[in-house]
Design a binder for these strands. Sequence first.
DNA 1: GAGATCCGCCTAACAGTGTTCGGATTCTTG
DNA 2: CAAGAATCCGAACACTGTTAGGCGGATCTC
Lengths: 245, 245
Amino acid sequence: MPATRHTTTAPVPLRERRRAAAAQEILDAAERQIGEQGPAALSLRAVARSLGMTVQALYHYFPNRDALVTALIAKAYGELSDALQAAADAERAAPSSAPRLVAVAEAYRDWGVARPEHFQLLYGTPLRYYAAPAEGPTTQAVRRMGAVFQRELFAGFSPAQLAAADVPPLSPPYREHLEQLPLHAQGDLPPAAVALFLSAWGHVHGLVVLEVFGHTAYLGAHQAEVFRTSVRMMLEDVHRRIPAA
Amino acid sequence: MPATRHTTTAPVPLRERRRAAAAQEILDAAERQIGEQGPAALSLRAVARSLGMTVQALYHYFPNRDALVTALIAKAYGELSDALQAAADAERAAPSSAPRLVAVAEAYRDWGVARPEHFQLLYGTPLRYYAAPAEGPTTQAVRRMGAVFQRELFAGFSPAQLAAADVPPLSPPYREHLEQLPLHAQGDLPPAAVALFLSAWGHVHGLVVLEVFGHTAYLGAHQAEVFRTSVRMMLEDVHRRIPAA
DNA sequence: GAGATCCGCCTAACAGTGTTCGGATTCTTG
DNA sequence: CAAGAATCCGAACACTGTTAGGCGGATCTC
């Protein structure tokens, strides 16, 4: 079997373009359905129905449901990353980096609260038998998202400062593993800083997860303030662990 | 229609007992299936099959799938609470309260890591169309679980100390709402302490959620150390905010 | 002990899901 | 224009939760 079929001069993206357009249309319809009915209600038949075609047509654009879901997840991660980046950019004029980190965290929460169905798609397990691919477009999108947060968390600190962060002693193999981790957003991040980042990220994520999944409903309308207070404390605590220049 | 049918002397728990035994058997089979196949694969038909009966028989013990799921969730919360309490009790001899809180946090993680399917049942949304009841046995179990954590987090501090905790200013309505919250484990907890508790709980939960749901798989076998380090820092940070006696 | 009642379980069916096979239609390509 | 590929649909399979109707046996009353 030779490489491809379009052996003529032009790259022949004629048919390909229609394919891509149709696939995009399917993705949009699926996303719409998730936003309306929740991720668990995602149904190939319903997607096809809303597009005026039958189920089997979808199989010409996605090999199976999991592939469609993976594409949806990757897209959602991308949009979430964009939201975080936009929030950070909006606070670029701030004199200190603190408001930028707060803005990023708030953007993370805002995205989850505004679109709980999509948030559940990313962080719940709403689709029975769905297994996320080990390495794919999603992992890359996740890394990008973490990079935004990490950048603003440590903005304004030198590598020397970060390396001297007051962190419990890390075991040598753990240090080594952290050093050769592919989440170095910009320049090398010392292990102590990575440990701080992981803790902070878990902190922010946990607060949002509890709220979006309804486990802190008893807090009512004050959930925004709970989050704001917690993030502020978290930022203070992290900065307190980084020595002054 | 009069009250009940058993108008004889004895309370006639004869049939009731069989009913309860059968219901328990169903619950066990369902839990076994969750442990083996994951919560998303929970199927009434499969449960009935493993018990040698047909689907419709289950409907004589649970009105529908959601009721069975609710019972499973309540049971899982109970077991999780027991695990936390047991971990705290095991460290009762410790001179300081710090190791108890660490032990409770580790127990939370251990439970989630050891039984990821059950953890997903509690904190994911694995069942399509399942809607948790607003007030029921689950909320009570959740409160009990939070109480264990909260107790160990603030053990050894007086109400006066907790009230003077160094926390960002809380808005008056937020303070008021926190004061009349039904999660006062023992004695009244000042709003500042509640804010600290909520932040700490979100922190621990977020770390565990990320790990159990596979979002930090890139950390490999070091995830236990990530957690231990983060919890230690969290505890230091919380205690640093509570003034000395 | 005999009769009435109710409980427990079954067979059958409905609407829904993801997925596959085979044939028909349409549209691009040489 | 003819060849051929890409697209699409009808039908089917195995699975899900749920409901209706009917049968047998255990239980309770007299």
